[in-house]
Write a protein that binds this DNA or RNA. Structure first.
Lengths: 334, 334
DNA sequence: AAAAATAATGCAAACGTTTGCATTTCTTTT
DNA sequence: AAAAGAAATGCAAACGTTTGCATTATTTTT
């Protein structure tokens, strides 16, 4: 494989000259430039990234940590689209993307090693993957990193990007009202998930804003028997005319239960779900969804990281990615 | 960041000695070994991979090319599980995984560069991503690579791993027969897909083996109106008592159509689908699926690649990953 | 106790770049 | 035409490792 020296020899010039035309880092006569270019083409020269990295301390690679323990992250289209976006940005800028999960056994050492062994120039972490230890390491080394998802209060940095779950909650309510529904209820899988808490908060705020009295039992945490919960809902609060589900699977079960109770959708009851997972589209009727533009999220995250890489010590600023409605049959009340 | 020289200085020894204890490449007295180890720990030493790679020509990174154009690959759990598997194997062996899509614009240059710029030691390619050009490059450089999916006849190499689609077709039929069904039909999305061709071939072979006369119209290529196709099937060939669908979405529609025709499942009609996509589990009834152990596929691919990396010029051998049945309600005829 | 063999370590070059400084060549100014 | 300035290029060190060869220290053999 041709090296810079081979080119230099062929053209009869010093390796440094070759380096300079490659990097455009000094004025080289047009003539030699041409000759060197030609030689590079002829010998099919490609720079050795390792050598380059060794001297100027960068690898043109960024890391992306994935949370393999978290099955949802995987199953979810969410994740995949984000990765695609990140990869696209990365490639556009001439970088490569290195993927790793944070190695259960070694307690995050996989990530630590990537940083310390100079394999990457920056890293994207899922909020589930941050530990005080890791953060300290990164900060100490002034190592560029961005977090996907909003960390809890204890984290003071602003280098994160999340989707706007609360906004999504509000949007869902607003959409239902616009469609002519008057009294939405909310089905939550588990309040343990912070994203569900946030969606719930948005739900409540938007109800309040529209002066709709929100009763405690308009918010239902799903247990084993969704069918039962539905029945209760139908009996106790007959004014409920629409349901928001914080995830697809819940929505699926709600749909089944409603059908069993012979409730017509979307006429008697509207349904809207979070996460535009393929499932939503194929149900009967197809479900309107609060979509989270995860491609945008990934893009934003990547851009944010590259900003940090290009100019270290830059002011950090967190961001929320807006949600949007994918309108389908399940909320077409008319 | 501490280097080998720092360690050497601290212990009062030559850098080469430090290198040797790190690599266990020569006999070093127990005493100095201990001192060096201690110093390494104290200074939190981590080898600089770039420097190491520069001298001994490897990066401890492998590449994985994904076919981002191919949405299916993404949406599919298929892909994700394989990646997880590959990542796990990779990490276990102390390597890292670099992901790239093969850059539409630059016509595969992304991959070419990875190889030529010494960013990786080996690469995994989707069969959709191979071109004669690329293959030639890899072969010329004796660069280790493995293909995911069976290439067509024109490819003479044996360095590929695929799932056993034909076997899956056979398995589906066999399962139905075991459940007591007598005459399966097959719903195919499009015969353009080679994996569907293979599944179809398996279907036919197994029918033949069981002396079941396979009529042309036992194999239905899905058009716009599955409901209609179903109706036709029910009318024309009343002996059909079970349906195999080569993918989930088709299965979903078949299910809907059958319900509309008030055909009871699994009693009057059994259904079995390919690809254990989450959807299958949540349908009513939950669908029996021919599962493709994509985790295993990924593992196999990765192992195969690492074999090649460790011992270049080793004999290549392609492999099929077996399928298996995930039994659910939709084939419980009794 | 000297010679031979072995174990432990040091020295210096090499991997392929980049880059500060020095030198040469060319162009402009006086 | 000499001096000054700018442009083009060369030299050599540096980045952090590894490794063949040389050297020294230690042990074993005679």
């Amino acid at each position: 494989m041709a090296t810079i020296k081979d080119i230099a020899k062929k053209v009869g010039v010093n390796p440094s000259t070759v380096s300079r035309v490659i990097n455009g880092t000094a004025s080289i006569s047009e003539e030699t430039t041409k000759k060197i270019m030609a030689a590079m083409k002829e010998l099919d020269y490609h720079p050795n990234i390792l050598a380059r990295g060794l001297v100027n301390g960068n690898t043109f690679t960024i890391g992306l940590v994935i949370d393999a323990g978290n099955n949802a992250a995987y199953a979810n289209t969410f994740f995949i689209k984000s990765v695609t976006a990140i990869e696209n940005v990365t490639q556009r800028l001439g970088y490569n993307l290195l993927i790793t999960n944070h190695g259960e056994r070694e307690k995050g050492n996989a990530v630590k090693n990537l940083v310390l062994e100079h394999k990457i120039d920056g890293i994207i972490l899922p909020v589930s993957g941050i530990t005080d230890d890791l953060i300290r390491l990164l900060r100490e080394n002034q190592f560029p990193f961005v977090i996907m998802g909003e960390p809890d209060q204890s984290y003071t940095g602003k280098n994160w990007v999340d989707m706007d779950n609360e906004g999504g909650g509000r949007l869902a309510v607003r959409h239902l009202l616009e469609c002519g529904y008057r009294h939405p209820a909310l089905f939550v899988e588990s309040m343990k998930n912070t994203f569900e808490q946030k969606r719930t908060r948005g739900f409540m705020k938007e109800l309040e804003k529209n002066k709709i009295p929100a009763a405690k039992n308009d918010i239902i945490e799903v247990g084993d028997d969704i069918a039962l919960k539905i029945k209760e809902l139908l009996n106790h609060r007959s004014e409920t005319d629409s349901i928001i589900c914080t995830n697809n699977i819940v929505a699926y079960h709600v749909l089944q239960a409603l059908k069993q109770n012979k409730v017509s959708i979307p006429e008697e009851m509207g349904i809207i779900t979070f996460d535009n997972y393929p499932l939503a589209e194929y149900l009967d009727p197809p479900l309107t969804a609060v979509d989270i533009d995860t491609y945008l999220l990934g893009e934003q995250v990547a851009n944010s990281l590259f900003d940090m890489i290009k100019q270290k010590g830059r002011k950090e600023e967190s961001a929320f990615i807006e949600t949007k409605i994918i309108k389908r049959k399940s909320t077409e009340k008319r």
